[in-house]
Write a protein that binds this DNA or RNA. Structure first.
Lengths: 196, 196
DNA sequence: CACGAACTTGAGGGCATCCTCGATTTCGTA
DNA sequence: TACGAAATCGAGGATGCCCTCAAGTTCGTG
């Protein structure tokens, strides 16, 4: 019934898998701009084969990133399951950026979530879907300042992505420290600056 | 006596000026990675002439950035002149990022301040020289949390640089909003997370 | 004004990446 | 096993940027 696209020949399926593995590694190491022939070489396959399977870079990303972004769902779920809404919120941020810190491709993907292909973009936004609820719950509990919105979370992702890029190699704890300062400014009682 | 390097011929001096003007514009618009031939074209000069005057990209930057970075000194001075040390500190951040927001080249330069040529690097660090004093003064007044160090300022520059890059075109107030959250977390009484 | 030094020019070689396509190999089946 | 469809291969054209250098131009002084 839902046989979907045509079945692949065995060698083709094998190569496709090798490409996905290589792409996952290379993108995680070098970011979303990594040269495609590095990926082909790591997969032990020619550049032409890569293009056979994935006609564009975006197609390759769309085959890889949704799976990687699924980790976001677990983090969101854990945040909502936390009995303390504030701890849930803070833990969500911690988990989100830890994810970005260990995978350059996620770091890039979340930053560019709007300018990427529909598939990837959807996956990113899906990951943020729950964020809205996590934020509202923490605000309802009175611990998170009321003027923090989900757009501010996007901004924070931008900010932290750069901190991660610049510091992961040399001082991998830097982003946690930066986040700690920021989070302290998100507590309801810390709010001083009036924001509309 | 201090005649310095040989005087330039009139046409050469004119071209050099045109190059500096063009480079200032192009780098401000496109960032420090802007293609050099764009600069030559905007200056109405051939790429060879650009290389005659500035054998490397770094040499060109060294001729431009120190002047642009001088604005930092004024901002620092104003911060130290403010009778309220906290307002001085907060105003310094505001001024610093406003500068980054209006000039892509400064944004890039401050981020890469360590990996740039000695000349430029010195200019960047010179701009940060006073920052140490601004921070200490604000801490002595009891308003700035004690665990904020000048390395954290570098981290904040990284963070804000990305916010600026991503949002200046579409929502130019975003960085101010982000900074407001962050600054609220830097007040002494906001400190909750223990940082060593 | 005429001459040599100073300066400018832009075509072209080098490099890294993208992407294509005709020739070749491999697979699965009859 | 032998055949056609499916898949692979990789050389090579295109692009964009870097940088150089031999030939030509301009300046300023004697």
């Amino acid at each position: 019934m839902a046989a979907g696209p045509k079945p692949l020949r065995s060698d083709a399926a094998r190569n496709r898998d090798k490409l996905l593995v290589a792409a996952t590694q290379v993108f995680a190491e070098r970011g979303l701009d990594a040269p495609l022939d590095h990926i082909a070489r790591r997969a032990g396959v020619s550049i032409g084969t890569l293009y056979n399977h994935f006609p564009t870079r975006e197609a390759l990303l769309a085959a890889i990133l949704p799976q990687r972004l699924a980790a976001l769902d677990e983090i969101s779920a854990a945040a909502l399951a936390d009995p303390d809404p504030w701890n849930g919120f803070a833990g969500f941020l911690e988990g989100l950026f830890a994810l970005q810190a260990q995978d350059h491709s996620l770091n890039d993907a979340l930053v560019q979530s709007f300018s990427l292909s529909t598939d990837v973009s959807q996956a990113c936004h899906g990951g943020f879907q729950q964020a809205e609820r996590i934020i509202e719950r923490a605000q309802a509990s009175g611990r998170l300042r009321a003027d923090f919105g989900s757009q501010d979370l996007v901004t924070l992702v931008w900010a932290m992505s750069q901190v991660i890029r610049e510091s992961m190699e040399t001082a991998p704890e830097t982003w946690r420290r930066c986040l700690a300062f920021f989070v302290d400014g998100l507590r309801a009682e810390a709010a001083r600056t009036a924001l509309r």
